[in-house]
Amino acid sequence: GIPATNLSRVAGLEKQLAIELKVKQGAENMIQTYSNGSTKDRKLLLTAQQMLQDSKTKIDIIRMQLRRALQ
């Protein structure tokens, strides 16, 4: 079985993952909103794209940590 310490770690990672998935969803929504907007929305679009990139990276890292914890 999986050690108890790993189980609480997994629960924490799953919570983090859920949050990051919401951030990713929000960033994707912002990108959709701003991509057909005016030029003043360009900065917001770039910010949203950066957020999305960061979020995807975090999600990958969390998933990797989850896999390790579940081994």
Rank of each mutant, 00 (worst) to 15 (best):
V10K: 04
A11Y: 07
L17Y: 02
T39A: 10
A48K: 01
S55K: 01
L52V: 03
S8M: 07
Y34V: 04
L52W: 08
N36E: 14
G12Y: 15
L13M: 03
L17P: 00
T33K: 15
S8W: 04
L13I: 02
L46Y: 08
E20N: 03
L21E: 04
A18G: 04
S35C: 15
I19Q: 10
L45A: 02
A18M: 10
Q50S: 06
D60G: 11
V23K: 13
Q49K: 07
K43D: 11
R42F: 13
N36K: 10
V10S: 02
M30V: 05
A18N: 06
K56P: 00
L52E: 01
T39W: 06
S55N: 01
E20W: 15
M64I: 07
Q65Y: 06
Y34E: 02
K40R: 07
K15P: 00
E28A: 04
Y34I: 08
A69M: 09
I62Q: 00
V10R: 04
K58Y: 01
L70D: 03
Q25L: 08
M30D: 10
N6A: 08
Q49R: 12
N29G: 06
N29Q: 14
Q65S: 03
I2G: 09
E20A: 08
T47M: 15
K22S: 06
G37R: 03
T47S: 12
Q71W: 04
L46Q: 10
I19A: 13
A69K: 02
D54T: 09
A69N: 03
G12L: 15
D54R: 13
D60W: 14
M30I: 06
Q25M: 08
E14A: 14
K43R: 09
G37P: 08
Q50D: 03
K43E: 12
Q49N: 05
T33P: 01
D60L: 14
L66K: 01
A48S: 02
Q49T: 06
L17M: 03
L44Q: 07
I59N: 00
I2T: 10
T39V: 09
A27K: 01
L45K: 02
I19R: 13
T47Q: 15
N36V: 06
S55F: 01
K58E: 02
K15R: 13
K58V: 03
P3L: 08
I59S: 01
M30C: 09
D60Q: 13
L17R: 00
T47H: 13
S35M: 14
G12C: 15
K43I: 11
L21I: 07
Q71P: 03
K22E: 07
R68A: 13
L70R: 08
I59M: 02
Q16F: 03
L52M: 03
V10A: 03
T5W: 10
A69H: 04
K24E: 02
Q65L: 15
T47Y: 14
L45D: 01
D60S: 14
Q71K: 07
T33D: 13
Q53M: 09
G12R: 15
A69T: 05
K22D: 04
K24F: 09
K15G: 03
E20F: 11
D54L: 07
S38A: 11
N6L: 10
D54I: 08
L70A: 06
Q16C: 13
L21P: 00
Y34T: 02
S38T: 12
M30H: 03
E14H: 12
L44M: 11
L70G: 05
V23A: 08
P3D: 11
K22G: 05
L70M: 08
K58T: 03
E14K: 15
L21Y: 06
M30F: 05
K15E: 06
Q16V: 04
P3E: 10
E14Q: 15
Y34G: 02
A27P: 00
G26L: 15
Q49G: 02
L7D: 11
A27H: 06
T57Q: 12
S8H: 10
E14D: 02
A18L: 09
L13P: 00
D41V: 03
K43P: 06
L44N: 06
D54F: 05
L44K: 11
V23E: 03
N29L: 14
A69D: 02
R63P: 00
Q65T: 03
L45N: 01
N36W: 05
I2S: 10
D54P: 00
I2D: 11
I19V: 08
Q65P: 00
A48G: 02
I2K: 11
K22F: 05
L44G: 05
D41I: 02
D54Y: 05
Q16G: 02
N29M: 11
E28L: 14
A18Q: 14
L70W: 05
K24T: 03
D41T: 03
K22A: 10
E14S: 10
G37K: 06
L21G: 02
Q53N: 05
M30Q: 04
N6S: 10
K43S: 10
Y34Q: 03
I31M: 04
Q32N: 10
M64N: 08
K40N: 08
S35W: 09
L13A: 00
D41W: 05
R67V: 08
T57W: 08
G1Q: 09
D41A: 03
S38V: 09
A69R: 02
